[in-house]
Amino acid sequence: MKVRRTERLLNYFVLIIFSLIVLAPIFTIVVGAFAPADAKAAQQGSFHPENFLTAWHEGRFGQYMTTSVLVAIVVVTLTVVLSLFSGYAFGTMTFRGREVLFYTFLLGIMIPAEAVVIPLFFDLRSLGLTDTIWAVALPQVAQSVAFGTYWMRTYFKGVSPSILDAARMDGATPQRILWSILVPMGRPAITTMVVLVFMWTWNEFLIPLVMSPTGAFRTAPLGLAFFQGQYTQGTALLAAGAVLVALPVVMLYFILQRHFIKGMLEGSIKE
């Protein structure tokens, strides 16, 4: 396809402008994180990497990040195991009620947390479960399992039936077929799911906000929101805290960006 040189130049111009628009706010917050936190620090120069340490301690990000990691481990592990099981059944087996059950799971992808978080809070409170990791994690497992079932079913449906038949001929049990054949083969699909569920869990706000009213299980994004409430004067420490909260997922994104992009594009496209 031939395109005139001026048009080509114009295209590069468009690419650069849009990249700058996306990067500018990120750049602002990163630069802000290194700025002097107060007048005293301003006298000692304009570059202050120690802001991160100060924010880490004053904003208690160590504690909040630990909570976030714990919640993420629970949500990701449970989601992966449960979705492997359900996706395996939906993708490779025929049984009564398969369609109805599957669409029931699909519905879950659209149910907003806003609708379920109120009854969940009051019911879990009467069970004495609020302010525990379960109240924060299990509703997110339910949301992620809806997606995970859909995602893993797509993978299992794509597996050649002859592989399954051969394994069955050899007398392998369904569990055995799943763990020794399908899971190793499906590593890319599983990685994508792990990456997406980790990101959603790490970034989730409403569920941990409501489910941990005393703040005992406050995750990193909540810690940042509360830090902002406390720190109205200086922006540098707040910016440093924001960078700390975003960093784990952003780093993972740069390592596994194919999985992020592929997952978010294909996960949203219906068959």
Partner: peptide, 9 residues
């Protein structure tokens, strides 16, 4: 990139 950054951030 904006997709992967927590909305709070």
């Amino acid at each position: 990139l904006p997709q992967v950054i927590a909305m709070v951030v």
